[in-house]
Amino acid sequence: MPRASDRDRPSASGLPRFSAGVSAISVLTVVGLVATDPASLAFAAIGGLAVGVGLLRRSEFALTSGVSGLFVAVLQAGANGSPEWVLGATVPIVLAWVTARHALRLGAQVGSAAPTLRVELVHTVSVVVLLTAGGGIGYLIYRSVTGTPSPLALGLLLLAVVAFTVSLR
């Protein structure tokens, strides 16, 4: 008679490998990008560890804290650098966060026994396309400004961002 432990192990024990891998590579990319600045590297390392813990222990809190740590590291490293660099370095952070959350959700709902690669690919590709499009438009607007923009214009743009966020919530 088969023992219960062999047969009835919950299938939600594993994480989808592809999404978890994309997430891990993105985290490593961020760590590599900020490696020149010791303080940023420390933030990024701690944040990366927290993302790993969040994935392994299925803790949303650890995941979000880790991603925040990575973002702080990028801001710290790019504070005096170009905005383009910050924009580019944020892409892997957002990608890491989104794919990690997707992996957690798939792991909880489907488990690792069923193949999930197709859905993961579709999701990752759509997110990359979205991020590229969104970031590209933002960057174009930024580049279209020549000279020193007036503070009023910046204030109005901030208002626009907040208003859109509220409406899209």
Binding site: L87, T90, I137, G138, L158, V162
Partner: peptide, 24 residues
């Protein structure tokens, strides 16, 4: 975006574009 404007980091404000794209 609020932090970027207050601290004068334009890159931080730019990253809001990602969020607006995802939410939109």
């Amino acid at each position: 975006s609020a932090g970027g404007v207050v601290m004068g980091v334009p890159g931080a404000v730019l990253t809001a574009a990602f969020g607006v794209a995802l939410a939109g």
